[in-house]
Design a protein around this nucleic acid. Structure first.
Lengths: 197, 197
DNA sequence: CCCGGCAGACTAACCAGTCGGTATGTCGTG
DNA sequence: CACGACATACCGACTGGTTAGTCTGCCGGG
């Protein structure tokens, strides 16, 4: 029996990461002990430290995964061949849907930055900045071409929208009346309405 | 010499609370040891546990203070004798300014809820809900009287705006180009623009 | 003389990370 | 194909360090 997939079918590293994600989201990073993680994943500490350098590494993986996914999706949308207005709407709605789809990741994201080691923290900030700038460029493009109001600096507009995304993990519940897509449409709509000249 | 104000003029309990607030905001609740708090306040554990029941109590005080202040301000604005549009704008801008004025409290607020004991957590949620409902009522009043668009459910509008408020502690810096009032005006403006029929 | 206000040593619990050990698999060689 | 050498994947007891909270007692003012 291959030890790597012992128990169920998924490989141990992914089981560990999944367990850690759920526990970090539920109880917070430092209310979660390494012992709890390995128990939830059905292994022991030996396995965890075989695949990951530290508890901190596990957290960093959550950030890396989320940032990679979001950046890829934004790039694809921003590079698409559509009017700015449409691309902004798509980007704004898309980030809402993927955030809701990974609500655990999202609540960890905004709550646990200060648990990352200084270098990892710096790295995460840098990647998030890249994302922010890409989004801001889209807004500016719309402002320059006259389809968006220039009343508000693009930076602030981006922070305004991401505030609402950030906030999703606080209030959104799958049991609520709205589907992720409906929430996304509404939030994108609010952004676009706010940007009308 | 009265021990209560030993060192500087402010009473020990307030010194403790101030030190805790700064440290919780800077390093997070559980990266802050009780020892650090008492050292920053210039006292010892004996003093802290003389005035507060637990470390958790200290955190709860931060929440209680913030909620009380915000609720009072919102009530005053909502009860004022002015058109809905104006009252919403005032309320939206005011919460931004007071949040920036107490940025430490704000970053603690959204990051450390899960460190509160279950009952305290419940209590905080209840008070926050009251705040939310009051704000929502304002939006609905505007929608019912036709000055605001009804395209988006009022609940979502409130969460949209509070997302951006929540997010302030992530990006706002006093060294940045915008004063708190300018940020507040912009964010209130974005909200009002999004609500135009 | 007594009590609120505080000092600071102490305790019991916990926890991240280590380390020596075991089982299974793979590969080169005769 | 048999066999040893080495590697990978994991186990779980242990350690060193930290921490929230307690408790005894001192000290000065009313």
């Amino acid at each position: 029996m291959a030890r790597t997939t012992d128990g169920d079918g998924t490989p141990v590293p992914q089981r560990l990461l999944a367990a850690a994600t759920r526990l970090f989201a539920d109880h917070g990073y430092d209310r979660t002990s390494v012992q709890e993680i390995v128990e939830a994943a059905g292994v022991t500490k030996g396995a965890l430290y075989h695949y990951f350098g530290s508890k901190d590494d596990l957290l960093h993986e959550v950030y890396a995964r989320m940032l990679r996914v979001q950046q890829e999706r934004l790039d694809a949308i921003a590079d698409a061949d559509a009017p700015v207005e449409q691309r902004v709407r798509d980007a704004a709605a898309d980030v809402v849907v993927t955030t809701i789809d990974n609500l655990d990741d999202a609540s960890i994201f905004f709550r646990s930055m200060h648990h990352l080691s200084p270098e990892k923290n710096k790295q995460v900030r840098a990647e998030r900045r890249r994302y922010h700038e890409r989004f801001r460029a889209l807004i500016e493009e719309g402002q320059d071409s006259g389809v968006f109001s220039t009343a508000t600096p693009a930076d602030l507009v981006v922070d305004y929208h991401f505030g609402s995304v950030h906030h999703l993990s606080t209030w959104y519940s799958p049991e609520g009346p709205l589907t992720p897509q409906q929430v996304a449409d509404h939030l994108a709509d609010l952004l676009l309405r706010a940007l009308r000249p």
